[in-house]
Measured scan of single mutants.
Amino acid sequence: NLRWTSEAKTKLKNIPFFARSQAKARIEQLARQAEQDIVTPELVEQARLEFG
């Protein structure tokens, strides 16, 4: 299971509600691909840039 830093959680809250669950799934996918067990603000930002 993935842990989220408080900064990453804050960044996730800045994503519009309607896109948040999809973004969260993508962020967690990116973390797993990078073999990380902690979601960082950088991963959230990477996903945000993908979504535009």
Rank of each mutant, 00 (worst) to 15 (best):
R32L: 10
V44P: 00
R48G: 08
S6V: 12
E45T: 05
D37L: 12
F18T: 05
F51Q: 06
D37R: 10
S21I: 13
L2R: 02
R32M: 09
R32D: 03
T10Y: 09
E50N: 06
R48H: 09
D37K: 11
F51K: 05
K11I: 12
T40L: 04
A31M: 03
T10W: 09
L49N: 08
R3F: 13
F17V: 15
Q22S: 10
A23I: 15
A19V: 13
T40Y: 05
Q22D: 08
E42I: 05
Q29F: 10
S6N: 12
A31K: 00
F51S: 06
K11C: 10
A8I: 01
W4T: 00
D37T: 13
E42Q: 09
A8Q: 01
A25I: 12
E45A: 08
Q46M: 13
S6K: 14
Q46R: 09
N1E: 14
Q33P: 00
S21C: 14
R26S: 04
L30M: 10
P16R: 04
P16H: 06
L43A: 02
Q36C: 10
G52A: 14
R32P: 01
F18S: 06
Q22G: 08
A25Q: 12
F51R: 06
Q29V: 08
F17S: 15
N1S: 12
A19N: 11
A8G: 02
A23L: 15
K13F: 11
D37E: 11
E35P: 05
L12F: 14
G52Y: 13
R48M: 15
E45G: 03
Q46A: 11
A25P: 02
D37M: 11
F51L: 13
E7I: 04
R20A: 03
N1G: 13
Q33V: 08
A47D: 05
P16N: 05
K11D: 05
I38F: 10
R48W: 15
R20M: 05
E7G: 10
G52N: 13
L12I: 05
K11W: 09
E28L: 04
E42H: 05
P16C: 09
N1H: 11
K9V: 14
R26K: 06
A47L: 08
L30C: 04
F51V: 07
K9E: 13
E28I: 08
P41F: 05
T5W: 01
I15K: 02
R48C: 12
F51W: 13
L30H: 03
G52K: 12
T10C: 14
A34R: 12
E50P: 05
N14A: 10
T40E: 03
E7D: 09
I38Y: 09
F51I: 11
I27L: 02
K13L: 14
F18A: 07
A47S: 05
E50Q: 10
Q33G: 06
Q29T: 08
L12T: 02
R26E: 05
E42F: 05
Q46G: 03
I38N: 04
K13M: 14
A19T: 09
A34F: 13
Q22P: 03
W4D: 01
V39L: 01
F17W: 14
D37H: 13
T5N: 05
L12P: 01
R48A: 13
R26H: 11
A8E: 00
A25T: 09
Q36E: 07
P41Q: 07
L43H: 06
Q29M: 11
T10A: 15
P16L: 03
Q22K: 13
N1Q: 13
Q22I: 12
N14V: 06
R32G: 04
S21V: 11
K13T: 07
R20G: 03
G52H: 14
T40C: 03
D37F: 13
E7Q: 08
E35K: 14
R32W: 05
